[in-house]
Structure formats: C-alpha cells, structure tokens
Design a binder for these strands. Structure first.
Lengths: 233, 233
DNA sequence: TGTATGATTTTCGTATACAATTTTATACAT
DNA sequence: ATGTATAAAATTGTATACGAAAATCATACA
C-alpha cells in the first residue's frame, strides 16, 4: 500500500493527536512549546503553527500568554458535537447512496478492514482514527467537500471526547455497524442507510458516560479512597 | 454600543476579509507577506498566522513556496457550500424556534437593523458581513456551538463566492427575508421558519451566476468588446 | 524578432534572538 | 504556620536573520 507523502506539519499534528487518542495526553495536559520542539526536532515556529491548527480544531485550547493545553470538552459540548454530527451525517446519506460507486464501496471497505485490523492488534489510536475516517469518507462519497471538511473537525472533537468520557480501560470491539452501513449505502437504500446511521451515532454517544457531573470539583468524592483510608486507620 | 475589544489578529483578519468583500482584493490576487507587514505594521510572524487562518477558512489559498492568493472557488464548490448551508441551517431551525427567547429576538433584530443601515449607507462590506452574522447568530440561538462555528466558516466562504459570482455592480437592496425569519422563529413556528429559510437560501444562491463556465479562459468572450471594435473599424 | 539560458532579485520557509508575561522560589511579616 | 511581597527562572509573544526556492530580468544566440 502506497503511503501518502505527508508533510512534516501533518505528521506532527497526527502524532500529537494520536497521543490524545491513546490517552497519553489527557485533557488539561500542558503542551510546552520547547518540549515539543525537542521531541520533534523542529523550531517553535513549526510547533506554534501546529498548536494553532489544533486549537482551531478544538483539540487544544490556546490560553494567551499561558500556553496550550489539551481541550476539555464539557458533557454539554459533546452532546452538541453529536447533534451536529447527526445533522450532517444523516443529511448526506441520500447523496451518498446516490453517488456511491464501486470504487467508493471499495474505499469504504478498505477503511473498515484496516479499522478491524487495528482493533484486533490493540492499536487503539489507529482504531479510533480509522473509525473517524470512515465517517469522513462517507461525506466524500456524498460528493460534498465542505461537509467532508466540517465533519473532519467534528470527528476530531468526537475522538477527543471519546478519550475523555469513555471508561479508560474500555476495550474496542469489532461490530458490524460500519459494514452494514456500507451495504445499505452501496445498495442505494437511503431509508435503511439513514436508519442505520442514526442508530450507530446514538450508540456511539450512549457509550460515553455523559451523565456524570463534568466538574469534578467535589474533592470529597475525588479523594474518597483517601478519606476511607484515613477513616480505616 | 460597546465595541468588543478585538485582538490584533482578528482585526487584521477582518480587514483582509473586508477587502475581499469589497472586491478590492479579487480572487487570484496575490497576498505578499512583506506588503501586508507594511500595511498593518506587524512582522511576518503575525501575517503568516493570519494567512494560515484565512486558508483554513478557504478564503485564501496557500501554495507552498509560491505565496498566498485569494481563493477562487469553482461554481461546483459554491453549490456544495450552499448545500452544506441548507443542511445546517434548515436542520437547526427547530432548535432555534425552541430556544428563542426575548434576548435572542432582540439580538437578531439588532443585527438586521445594522445590516439595513449598512445597505442604505452603501457599506457593502458591512452589509455582507452582517448578513452572514445573522445566519451565524441563528445557530447560536439554536444553542449549538459547534454548528455555529461550522456555519461561520461556510458563511465566510459564501461571502467570498458572492464577491466572485455576483455581478460587480450589483446593488445590495433591503428585503424582508431576515425579518420574516425572525418573526417566525420568535413565534416558535418551526414549519414556517423552515420554509422561509429554505426559500431565502435558494434565493441567495440563485442570485449568483453559477451557470457561467467558471474557467474564463475563453479570451474571445472576455475581449468581445475589443473584437467588436476591430470589426467595426 | 523570438527563444533559451543564466544571473539577479524577490519572496517564502525555518530558526533564532529579544521582549513581555507568567510562573516558581525565597524571604519576610503577621 | 500561613500569607504576602519580592526576586529569579521559565515560558510565551513578536521581530528579525538567514537559507532555500521561485520569479524576474538581462543577455546571448538562433
């Protein structure tokens, strides 16, 4: 498989993003420019450009004069992100069904194949990224580039939310949702595709624990174990 | 009216954008960094950051090693942009109707009032910008920030398209579309709001001459007047 | 006159230097 | 011991310097 030539910027962007997906960089983590410079062997000019792009994609937050941190989307933000995705992804299904050709089906299947391979090899970052790529690819099949680009941003934010709200040890498991959607879209069955996509997005959102109060400022609950330990002694 | 404190970046971004809206910077125009530095009295660091943002918003095109130019969206791009807007703007109408409170109605009316004032004072840039702001504000009323942000990008691209495809001398004229939408949304009449918005967007798209072959490489038509003159002599 | 080639100039891309702000550490007073 | 004020260090923000690529111009030649 021919690896697409990747500009240095995109590679570093992807590396940082992967670190987030793998929860090696957790929300709130500080991204010191000088450290990133050393890690990637480039000057601050480059790093700052990438941090700007990450901030525009809402993956990091840029606090003036105080540096960059991994963004911490609130539960409400995540709901809105998924509401936006529902609007876009269900909205383009008709067009996707209309324009889906053999090459498109093959591309979609290829992504899912790689996604499943990533899941089975324990490549969490790869699996999440490919799952996202699948949804973006559907926008490409629908032949609407602006929506494809907008969806790319939403998917990036969803992935970050996944890292935030999913149980840390949650195992990725193969399911047939994506394959079923490909089948319906390839067959041109808009109604069924729409239904499958709606259910799939609902499922994805439901997997997150958004009910939990997002501001964990209740120190007693946060340090419940400490309190118990002290009480026990 | 309290003017919002604006960061230098956003001010320069807005200035460049205004120049595009006023067709003082036409698509294809080259944006030399050093010239922009002199104009705005800042270093290339700042200018390059703003050019990056403009390029991510698809207002300028960044050609590696060859500089930045004002983007030239093709007719097909514009159709896709409007398709995306239809999806988002019609999709959020329900929520907008649901959440529209007195303060929201006032905010919307304020924008339209300023828009009409701009039209009547011949402030083309301001009028286009405020028209866009109206649509973005509706997303805010719908209480979905990601969509608001996505719409901001689409509206920016629409505005650029307007400058490209609208007849150069086309006069902006006051119409009641925005006011009618406010009325319907404030009343919570989702069906009517949806209908009005759909018609409004269709009208806006129809005002552009997208049928024309976008690559004007047909020099004979471009210089038709010259040819006529020569034939007449 | 037109084309091709090479030098010159301009412009872009990255790294670095310097200024401003924030954070951290330390000393002192309460 | 806690809190505040001050000084030192670290970090961010902007400007500039330098190397690389591209565009331009001049000259030579067909």
């Amino acid at each position: 498989m021919a690896i697409q030539a990747e500009t240095s910027d995109e590679w570093i962007y992807g590396q940082v993003f992967s670190a987030v997906l793998e929860q090696r960089l957790i929300p709130g983590a500080k991204l010191k420019e000088s450290e990133l410079c050393e890690v990637f062997g480039v000057s601050r000019t480059i790093i700052r450009r990438i941090l700007l792009r990450l901030s525009l994609d809402k993956v990091v937050e840029l606090r003036p004069n105080k540096g960059a941190v991994i963004a911490t989307p609130a539960a409400e933000d995540v709901r809105q992100i998924f509401a936006a995705r529902r609007l876009l992804e269900i909205g383009i299904i008709d067009e996707a069904c209309e324009h889906c050709e053999a090459a498109d089906t093959a591309a979609l299947k290829g992504i899912v194949a790689r996604e499943n391979a990533a899941i089975q090899s324990g490549d969490r970052s790869g699996a999440i990224r490919l799952a996202g790529e699948f949804h973006v690819e559907l926008a490409r099949v629908a032949r609407n580039r602006p929506i494809q680009e907008l969806l790319r941003q939403l998917v990036a934010q969803s992935s970050l939310a996944l890292a935030l709200y999913e149980a840390p040890g949650h195992l990725l498991c193969v399911d047939d949702d994506h394959i079923d959607i490909i089948t319906a879209v390839s067959a041109g069955d808009a109604a069924k595709s729409r239904d499958l996509m709606a259910k799939h997005l609902a499922k994805a959102e439901a997997e997150m624990k958004l009910e939990a109060p997002e501001d964990n400022n209740d120190l007693k609950s946060v340090f419940a174990d400490v309190i118990d330990a002290r009480a026990g002694v």
